[in-house]
Write a protein that binds this DNA or RNA. Structure first.
Lengths: 191, 191
DNA sequence: TTCCCTTGTACGTTATAACGCACATATGAT
DNA sequence: ATCATATGTGCGTTATAACGTACAAGGGAA
């Protein structure tokens, strides 16, 4: 089995997490039930832990597993990218509310539809989920070959790995559209 | 080391994933580079794979790691849980727009604040990100010891692992509040 | 039926994850 | 300075993940 050093691939975020919590290896050991020797080796990339022990560690630190596997420190995208109003050409008017963040695997758009305007969308990649929250007007969402009617203040969550679509009512519609992509940790090897 | 059968804990979704793709153990083996014997044991819960091999599998199937670890088939929460108006007692009025989904690791609330009402929130777990989208009124968000002013139609994304807070303007405020937890898979043990 | 191929599982071996303990190096106190 | 405690790393042993091969069971096709 290859080691992290040999493959040059990413190290788990364990060291960062532990440093952040200010715990020693010993404390972390009794907290997680994993020997401190093992914890040390994992931090140094000398060992590729089992998901069982990874789970113990995450549980001990009360963190989700993803907090350990991905690289990527959460960067604050609020300043630079906030309120950017890049608008897609062509059919519908789309503003970027929250740009895509690889850590979250999510992005949010603000979509405006003219009265009775219809927009069809092909199937996205597997595992993609969309959320729709209607801000104003009436909106029909095509999900599983069925149109679901929504009005302002209502929301709908659905899998976007099948063809789907949006259709505004007679007064047009404005809605938030969140895209959730599987997870991003996936883009980097772990050992 | 305990086995899945002994601890009664969750099995990885490998069997489901492979069944869905219609591949045999042999095919899956040469696709992922993991021996078919190992794949079989993992499916039966007789072995707790290393994250290294888990990564190989995910890579072979072109899936994110999260597709293998969590349980939880993506359930459509649109029908049953939509518009549930569970309201927190005490201070602020919160409605659940999108309930927490372990697959997405995300949830969305609809929060209403009375004029000048203020709500402080302690630091959440590491890796938690919040997004705020103002629907109506004026809202100040405390982020990094600094109040950021938002009005209707604006959004703000920030790390929620530090204390933060919300303060409505003189006309009150309504806003969507999205919580992104790292990833999910965290809610269930893996071996 | 018999042959052939594929499915998934069982066995024996090797590689290594995980453990407990001991050690070297701090950092602090008296 | 010495003593004390705690840090992180190295070593030897055990448990087990991972491999390769061999095997029993289930189809087809002749």
């Amino acid at each position: 089995m290859e080691t992290l050093a040999e493959t040059g691939e990413i190290t788990l975020k364990l060291r960062d997490v532990r440093a952040a919590s200010g715990l020693s290896l010993s404390k972390a050991s009794e907290l997680t039930g994993v020997s401190k020797a093992m914890l040390g080796q994992i931090e140094r990339g000398e060992s590729s832990p089992t998901i069982a022990t990874l789970w113990k560690i995450a549980k001990g630190f009360q963190l989700p597993l993803s907090a350990l596997i991905g690289t990527s420190v959460l960067r604050d995208s609020s300043d630079a990218n906030m309120f950017r109003t890049v608008t897609f050409p062509g059919s519908i008017e789309v503003k970027i509310v929250f740009p895509f963040d690889p850590v979250l695997g999510a992005e949010t758009f603000h979509v405006s539809l003219t009265p009775n305007q219809c927009h069809e969308s092909p199937a996205h990649a597997a595992g993609v989920t969309e959320e729709v929250f209607v801000l104003d007007g009436a909106l029909d969402v095509l999900r599983d070959d069925e149109w679901v009617s929504l009005h302002a203040g209502q929301g709908l969550r659905f899998s976007a790995d099948v063809p789907h679509g949006y259709r505004a009512g007679q007064t047009g519609a404005m809605f938030l559209n969140m895209h959730h992509y599987g997870q991003t940790a996936a883009s980097e090897p772990v050992t």
